[in-house]
Each structure stands twice: as structure tokens, then as C-alpha cells.
Amino acid sequence: MSLLEVRALTTGYRGGAVLGGVDLDVGPYEIVAVVGPSGSGKSTLLGAISGLVPVASGSVRLHGRDVAGLAAEDIMALGLVHVPERRRLFAGLTVRENLLLGGWRAGRRDIGRVLEMFPTLVGRLETPSGALSGGEQQLCAIARGLMADPAIMLIDEFSLGLAPVMAHDILVRLADIAAGGTSLVLVDQDAATALSVAERAYILESGFIVASGPSGKLLADHALLDRYLD
């Protein structure tokens, strides 16, 4: 059984339909990438899965249970964490407070485990998260998500604004995280980066999955990459 199983998912905003029936599967310990051009609906897909964007039709199964239509906070409590676009840290709160809020629902107050994973944050604990560099903010957002010890984490735009060294650093961490039992769905406009760490990938175009499969196979298909990715 997949950990996350999305079937025929459609949704949109007042302006019109955005997703036209998306299927997606994520298994335990897996890293899956969703790539596609700007405006193709990647963030909308993550939002529909996590409950931020209302689902129009289709199903979202988490551990076999249909969670489509549940409130975002209740889906989160079932073990699915969404690290959204632009990170959405609580800018006026310190890094420590942001981390504590990550563990709020589960009542976890021990930040030691995630600090071990992201030692850069140790010296920044009392800094307002809004004052962090872009890379540090991304680390903080991922660390905040991990505070809940989720079964699966959706990370939007994970490499945006990161210096290459920092991006590489995060990629290594992500592999560790997945190995530790948190499956990952990575969304990025930079397909090469996302596919370099993901085992499997989906290419989203205008709200439809136009291709999917092992990352290596997709990366080798130059015609496909030229056609759908910037």
C-alpha cells in the first residue's frame, strides 16, 4: 500500500480549473519529485494534498484513509507536513519559537534532534526568523516541518534562492531524512536539481501529469525535457 495515493484529483480557484485529474503515489522511504513550468499547478497540487486548497473531486489517501476535504490542521496531525512556497516562517518569532511551533501539534518540545540535522541553526536560535538569510530560512522551514516527525513531507520550491553549496547541503540532508522514515515530495522549477535526488518524478504541465517514471529515465529523455521544462 502506498503511503500517499492521489487519484483523479481536480481543483482550481475562482479563476478556473488548475488541476485536471492528477494521479500520484508515494511509498515509504521514497523521494519523489514533481517538476514543471511556472504556473503548471505544482503548488496548487501540494496545497490540495495538504488541505490548504479545497479539493473539487478525486481522492487523497494517506495511510489508506481518504483525507480530501479535511482541514489542513487535521491532515497535518495525521502525519503529512507541507513546507509551502516562500517558506512562510513566523517572521517575528525566533528560530527556536518557529521550531517549537513545528512540534506544537504533537506536543514535542525537544529541538535537539533537528538541530543535530541542521547545526547551522544552533547559533541562530534566538534570531528572529525574518532576519535569517534565504538559505537559513529554508533550513529553518524544513527543520520546523521535521519537528512533527511526519510520515511524509511536501517541500515546495526547496532550492529557490539557495547558493549552490547550500542547495547541495540540503540535498544530502533530504536523503538522510527519507532514510530516517520521512518520505519526501519535492517540488521545484529546477528539474535537474530535483531529479538528482529523487528516485521517481512526475512532470506536471497545465494541470496534467504528462510524464512520470524513474528520474534517470526522465533525465535521459532530452526531447521530453526540452518540451516541458525550462
Binding site: 490542521e73 497535518m76 509551502p84 512562510r88 511551533l101 506544537w104 520546523r144 512533527a148
Partner: peptide, 9 residues
Amino acid sequence: DAARLVGIP
């Protein structure tokens, strides 16, 4: 929304 994403009702 960020509050909902950390599970706050």
C-alpha cells in the same frame, strides 16, 4: 495558513 500547516486548529 502557516499556523494551520503546523497543526493549529
